[in-house]
Design a protein around this nucleic acid. Structure first.
Lengths: 282, 282
DNA sequence: TCGGGGTTGGAATAATTTATTCCTCTTGCC
DNA sequence: GGCAAGAGGAATAAATTATTCCAACCCCGA
């Protein structure tokens, strides 16, 4: 995961001074690369030592290491395809600008989501899902829709899946889980009480808990055995969590495709389900 | 041109000492990024000052600048097969390729979907939704999830919305529609019998029918007053309609955002709903 | 309200790194 | 041989970075 994402995720939990430094780096990564600790400190009116300490708190051995990481993150930024704009949608924007920004922010969250989950973690989640006797999906609100979408796909592969949008039913079902079962819990905030309680119960019953949450520190991911992450733009009010949902879908789609790749008879299952449904087409 | 190429090109014309430094950087660019001038000099048995002079002879203001350039060159190397790939996912594809193809095909369907609905048609749909006394959403299977997602968003704006995933309930509700109501029907194939029947009934009762279907000729769009289109990759078996769903979401997200833009108090509504939900957060 | 433990963050300073200066040595040329 | 020019290193100045120490500021619990 890129430093910039890491900084962004930790920003809220930082002390004011550190937050200021982090914000400056996020806002001006290219300038930062050319600034000494003292110069950066001067830019934001803080002490030189606080910048050094900031680097160390992020886990880098030195300020130079932090710079190296930022430089790498900058260079590895995906190049933006033509016609796509990254930026939040403003009141005055006209139709073509809105189109581009919408597609742009969706793209960004998808890219950052796939980039923030390394192959190992995805692999662990995959192995757990593959071995699972039963898979129980938890989530409320928009996350429940993603859970249901994922459940449909898993069912097409012949898996044993459970999901109900009612959180009382989720809770009741979780009480029947045990070792060998998997709970797949979705919540961007990681703080939805219902989902959290379901995860805690599942964990206590011995099931493997996979949590899909934002990058920030949150209760749900602390409960989980396997942590997966979604990246969405933070301005939720205006977008009504569009990108958070897209990020979740990107992740579940990815897991589904990898399951298909690893399951030899997957295409047959999927094909049979298509044929079955086609009876209901005009 | 990258620094490494520049160094390589000039190598022959350099003095022995400089050549040695240049060669070392070419051979060990990643190590070099973590070495000080003195450490680099020690590696090759030269003086610290010669390293500084080397940087300056290459035209960089400082050794740090040279490092920055090398870092950038390195990172760019990594992303040679960079960015987005358009193409269907094959059995032999490895993880990074799958990631890029997944994001690529999602992006493609989003771009093509926004491109294939011109502003006039979107505007008509918007006007109909805006005027509607009640909005009834129809769809089965994955389309039902999109319908529900859209219904949640419309409700946040204080609209009068109806959706149930059960097609019998949808049919029953459609029978209560009349002039001034809108039926918003989603079906990528445009051939799902249940959705089609609901649309026919709604039309007969005088409601305005908005159909969201693929670009091909299909029964549902023939019934509709207003036709909107989604573009998805056709290889549905393997992808299990991932892009069809993404296209539908892109379209409904777009309509939602445009409604927000046109409704002065929209942000207030959305904000209130966020606040209400936050009571259920840990 | 009063300590006490923990955190934040800056000043001072130590340590390290970088840049410059200055000198010697070599080489090529007349 | 004498001279100019550049290579290259030692010494040193300048800068940058890292650490230490300390004051101020919470939070808590008593």
């Amino acid at each position: 995961m890129s430093v910039l994402n890491r900084i962004n995720a930790k920003l809220d939990g930082m002390a004011p001074g550190d937050r200021q430094i982090g914000q400056y780096i996020l806002d001006n990564p290219d300038q930062m690369l050319r600034l000494s600790t003292a110069a950066l400190a001067a830019e934001i009116g803080r002490s030189q030592s606080s910048v050094v300490k900031f680097s160390q708190k992020l886990g880098y051995a030195s300020y130079q290491e932090l710079k190296l990481a930022v430089s790498e993150a900058r260079a590895k930024d995906w190049q933006v395809p033509a016609g796509v704009i990254h930026g939040s949608i403003e009141v005055g924007d006209d139709y073509p600008v809105i189109l581009r920004k919408l597609v742009g922010s969706k793209l960004l969250s998808m890219q950052q989501t796939v980039a923030s989950n390394d192959e190992q973690h995805i692999g662990k989640a995959l192995a757990a899902l593959d071995r699972a006797r039963r898979i129980h999906l938890a989530g409320v609100g928009a996350s429940s829709l993603v859970a249901r979408d994922f459940s449909y796909k898993l069912m097409k592969l012949g898996r044993n899946v459970l999901h109900d949008s009612d959180s009382h039913v989720q809770m009741a079902n979780a009480s029947a889980l045990g070792a060998g079962d998997v709970l797949f819990a979705l919540s961007y905030s990681g703080a939805s009480i219902e989902t959290l309680r379901v995860a805690e119960l599942a964990r206590a019953r011995g099931a493997t808990v996979i949590a899909v949450t934002g990058l920030h520190d949150n209760p749900l991911s602390r409960v989980a055995d396997i942590r997966l992450h979604t990246v969405a733009d933070e301005e939720k009010a205006r977008s009504s969590s569009i990108t958070a949902r897209d990020a979740q879908l990107t992740l579940t789609d990815l897991l589904f495709i990898l399951l298909v790749q690893s399951q030899p008879d997957a295409n047959e299952y999927v094909h049979n389900s298509e044929v079955a449904v086609s009876v209901l087409k005009a």
